[in-house]
Design a protein around this nucleic acid. Structure first.
Lengths: 238, 238
DNA sequence: AAGTATTGATTGTATATACAATTTTGATTA
DNA sequence: TAATCAAAATTGTATATACAATCAATACTT
């Protein structure tokens, strides 16, 4: 999984931070020192630190040093494009795993699902409930409704990977409409997400459409707020 | 103002894109070609392209090339966007009012503000704390840090309106970088927002940049989750 | 003692070069 | 023609090195 030197070094540093070798607000060794320690060049160290900055683990302070910001990094996704959890986490070079809690073909679903997906009466959908984890820690709980006619067959094994990628083997996805709520976790979900009730979370409602504008899937996901941020680049229109 | 080679090159490329030299979905010249053209190294070109990627002007496609992205639309619908609260709320035809809680020119601010705004030591900023209301109900609490050199003077009356509009009378804003957290309100803020502690809220960190990529203002806002949702249209890149 | 200049440390940028990984393209072969 | 293989193109990573910009600490001068 770990392929590149700078990713490995970033991981090593992050581990050290998590282990307390470097504490919050403490300064990391200088780039040259790190380069010597890891027997590499300063530029490779810089790339490693760049990654940690992107993950918001450290901050740079020009001419002074690099300081520890948090002991944990957050995954972040947003309008940078439509990516599922798998692809987002991969950009952070994290190890993704999935627990499929439920997978069934059904004609029983809430009204708003039928409405959002523009379903015919009795039209079957795949209902997929998954728990997504990075490095073994629960991050996201997903409740997905996918038009069955898009994917006639779907195995539990397939449901473990990137659904977007799977779907795009038959229907290219054009865009999605996402609405974000901030919520507080109730008992059931907090258990699944391995945290406490009352903790904040994002609730994202996403409808993915084909290029033609036909709805394909509806996704209702809870993201642990301590592990996830949404990130937008907003262009000013002049 | 433009100091570094790679920033200049990024600007030149962005201009070319805007002028139509490179059109949407078109491929940029290869990095080696660009390096020759600008009489520099591939690594400098890469840093320039890195910047454009961060600004979402182009995307990389490994082993294939760098492609021009749609520089328009894609963002900021429904809510905050780079329109600021005033402009957003007006689209909903709501009656916006503002309570300026604090307005001061100061050289005392958190480290992360100095870092995000790339402030010189002792550089003065305007610190503006506002409560934004629609139809008399508290919606948003804003904590804004604005480089003083952008706006030498700022009255409490001016601070009641749209800051974005005010700023753009001197410096056009190019884009902003927004990060969303989901949080739970603590006592002080919940009082200001006229709700109860423990209620969920969005916490948005926004850094607004000039067209050249220089930071202008940092905004730390809490949005009542029961009154506000964030809405994105996500484009799938193919 | 207080201010000033110097020096070292540290991050930021830039050049030059090489190899790796993968996609595309073109040539070769069955 | 179709399939296979080889080469070229292109981005990604890595090493080595140098200088610039600025902060912090030290030494020096007044």
């Amino acid at each position: 999984m770990v392929k590149y030197l700078y990713v490995e070094i970033a991981g090593a540093l992050r581990d050290d931070i998590q282990k307390g070798v470097y504490e919050i607000h403490q300064k990391l060794p200088s780039e040259t020192d790190l380069a010597n320690h890891f027997s590499t060049t300063r530029l490779t160290i810089r790339k490693a630190i760049d990654l940690l900055v992107k993950q918001q683990v450290v901050v740079r302070d020009r001419n002074r040093g690099t300081y520890v910001l948090a002991t944990q990094s957050k995954i972040s996704s947003g309008s940078s494009g439509l990516v599922g959890f798998t692809e987002a986490a991969k950009q952070f070079q994290l190890d993704v795993s999935t627990r499929v809690l439920d997978l069934r073909r059904t004609i029983v679903y809430p009204d708003y699902v039928a409405s959002k997906l523009d379903l015919a009466p009795q039209e079957p959908v795949w209902q997929i409930e998954r728990l997504r984890m990075t490095d073994g820690e629960a991050m996201t709980h997903e409740q997905i409704y996918l038009k069955q006619k898009i994917l006639p067959e779907l195995t539990a094994h397939e449901a473990q990977g990137s659904l977007y990628r799977l779907i795009e083997q038959t229907v290219p996805i054009g865009y999605a409409n996402q609405e974000l709520e901030a919520v507080v976790l109730e008992k059931g979900l907090s258990d699944l997400l391995e945290t406490a009730p009352g903790q904040p979370a994002f609730l994202a409602h996403t409808v993915a459409y084909s290029m033609d504008g036909y709805p394909i899937l509806y996704d209702n996901s809870h993201y642990r707020a301590d592990k996830y941020t949404f990130h937008n680049i907003l262009q000013r229109e002049h």
